[in-house]
Amino acid sequence: MKVQTAFQGLEANQKERLRKLQEQLDSLIGLQSVKKVIGEIQAFALIQKYRETLSLACEPMVLHTIYTGNPGTGKTTVARIFSRMLKEMGILQKGHTVEVERADLVAQYIGQTAQKTREVLQQASGGLLFIDEAYSLARGGERDFGKEAIDTLVKAVEDQRESLVVILAGYPKPMEAFLESNPGLRSRFPVTIGFPDYSDIELYKIALGMLEQREYTLTAHAQQELVREIRR
């Protein structure tokens, strides 16, 4: 079944909004490998939703994902677009993105972390929960309150997989160690998307785009200085 066929399950206004979101994703400088994987996930999800309308057997959709890469490589931006895409596809009800880190999930006293984490999960319900440097939840070992947050998250991603998408983000090596810290994590986050560092040319294009948005024009000398700074 082709992706274009799956689009038949969407209303005209959904298709138009989805097209505009795809344009936003495509307009991001670089990230070709990331865009490819997002496209594959989108195609799979659309096909499953369309099969559902035809009362055909559907594969379970586990969309919880791991984003790995250095800061500033577009992880948060892609997550925001992806969440809105899922709303237009009828997978998420709201399509909003809640961005958190360790301090937003872990409390200072015994018994409070699970409640704090559940409150964040409730805020993200119907949308996407983006946890930056997720491995920091495990940095304190077995006696740290972060373990309680991890256990609460593991249960939630299973129980709420039809109403919530969770993305764990951070550096590749610490993320791998984090997945080993809890047996339930790896199976519940089956897809990992690596965000590569930008090349010098891509950074130059990003800088020019930002300047254009702010209605600045660089002289030839300023452009040379920009190139020199990027290459340092």
Rank of each mutant, 00 (worst) to 15 (best):
D132Q: 13
V106C: 04
L128G: 08
P172C: 11
G184E: 10
E119R: 09
V106K: 06
L129F: 10
E88W: 03
G170A: 03
V157S: 01
R143Q: 09
R80S: 07
Y135P: 13
V154P: 03
R102F: 06
P196S: 12
Q122S: 09
V106W: 06
L137R: 07
F189D: 01
A177H: 14
Q160K: 04
L105N: 02
L105V: 15
E88F: 02
G184F: 08
R102H: 05
V154I: 11
E176L: 01
G140T: 14
A134Y: 04
I110T: 11
A156T: 03
R188Q: 11
L153V: 07
A169T: 02
A149C: 06
A114T: 06
E119A: 12
L168P: 15
E99A: 08
S163P: 14
L128T: 05
D151E: 15
E88Y: 08
Q160D: 15
R118T: 08
S187H: 14
I150F: 02
T152H: 05
K94G: 12
I91E: 09
E119C: 09
R188E: 15
V100L: 13
G141I: 04
E148R: 07
I131R: 00
L137F: 11
E176W: 12
A149L: 01
E99C: 12
L92N: 00
I193V: 14
L129H: 01
G95K: 00
K173N: 10
V166M: 15
A156C: 06
A79Q: 07
L128F: 01
E158M: 03
E176K: 03
T192V: 10
G194P: 14
